[in-house]
């Protein structure tokens, strides 16, 4: 951090000023002139919060994707299918048992199993052949999409939000002051906050596991140099299977999350694959903090875009991607 400030004092200043302005926009009561210029504060605050929570969901999908890529150099284009598969499993479990929490656990286990099968049956056979693996995953994603369409139909599924999470809560952020002097607080859907917190917990846990545990050390070593790691006697194939299972399981959890606050239907697989590709390209391939930053940026861009420039909202995310590719092609937080 200090090194960044020393090396790029101007950039650091700009970032600090931008953060200060953002904090002011969030916490201050807006003067009437500003409300007239860019609309009500409630709308702005909602868009920011939505962007952050949507970023949480994107992070869940993209972190598994980036983890698998980082270790195995394997662009798994069937990642979106794992997301959708997890969502459908989650729906089936929550519909039959009524337990939302249980649906997460089972979805994680089953998608992780699919991940293990993929790694053992498909990827191990073509290790090191990046292009071939990529083509195979494209093919698999099409096959999975059709199988799921066959099994679940084209219907929209929504995972029932548990009753203690339905509805909004008041956040201690003032959006406006009534003429009587009474402050109006921001009302925000509780379920989105919970999901966001959960994704932060998962992100931190993953960071800790990677940086503070022995298995994390092995994985990091594998990211740096696979061959040397294998030569030191680590059972690298086992590590591959483990990482693939974890990445797939995260996609499965993300499917349950997505099915709860959005919906599940054919086509979602491609949408989330695309989203995680963009997130990972912006953040840096193979980097977990990069995935977090990328997810936050893309989530905010989508939501702020949909409020302030609705017609071009779709373009904004891709513009960001183009910009990153032009200025810093390896991604914002990539190490190399």
């Amino acid at each position: 951090m200090t090194r960044f400030v020393e090396r790029h004092p101007v950039w650091a200043l700009i970032v600090i000023v931008a953060i200060a302005i953002l904090l002011w926009l969030i916490f201050a009561v807006w003067p009437p002139g500003l409300e007239e210029a860019i609309g009500r504060k409630r709308v702005f605050l909602n868009a920011v919060f939505n962007g952050i929570t949507l970023g949480g969901l994107y992070f869940l999908v993209a972190s598994g994707f980036t983890l698998i890529f980082g270790l195995m150099r394997n662009v798994n284009l069937a990642h979106g299918s794992l997301y959708l598969f997890g969502g459908y499993i989650g729906y089936a479990i929550s519909a039959s048992t009524g337990s939302w929490i249980l649906s997460f656990i089972i979805a994680f286990i089953l998608t992780a199993l699919v991940g293990v099968l993929l790694q053992v049956i498909v990827f191990r056979r073509m290790e090191g052949q990046d292009l071939r693996q990529t083509m195979v995953t494209i093919g698999l994603s099409i096959v999975f999409a059709d199988l799921m369409l066959w099994a679940c139909g084209g219907d929209f599924y929504q995972i029932q939000t548990p009753s203690w999470l339905i509805g909004p809560i008041d956040l201690p952020l003032i959006t406006a002051v009534k003429s009587s002097g009474e402050p109006v607080y921001l009302r925000y859907p509780l379920v989105r906050l919970v999901i966001f917190l959960a994704s932060v917990v998962i992100g931190v846990a993953m960071w800790l596991a990677l940086n503070r545990t022995r298995i994390g050390m092995i994985i990091r070593a594998g990211v740096d140099d696979r061959d040397i790691l294998a030569a030191t006697g680590v059972r690298i194939q086992l590590v591959f299977v483990l990482v693939f299972a974890l990445g797939a399981g995260l996609a499965g959890i993300a499917g349950v999350v997505g099915g709860t606050f959005q919906s599940l239907s054919p086509g979602e697989d491609i949408r989330f694959l695309l989203a995680s590709l963009v997130v990972v390209i912006v953040g840096g391939m193979g980097s977990i903090p990069g995935a977090a930053l990328g997810a936050l940026i893309i989530g905010l861009a989508e939501q702020l875009g949909s409020v302030y420039i609705p017609t071009y909202a779709i373009v904004v995310t891709f513009l960001i991607m183009v910009l990153v590719l032009a200025v810093r092609p390896q991604g914002l937080l990539a190490r190399r």
Binding site: G39, R42, V43, N46, A47, N50, G51, T53, L54, P189, R192, Q262, S263, G267, E268, R271, E302, Q303, L304, S306, V307
Partner: peptide
């Protein structure tokens, strides 16, 4: 094909 309507709803 919009999925996240939260901001639209807020507006």
């Amino acid at each position: 094909g919009t999925k996240d309507f939260a901001s639209v709803i807020a507006a």
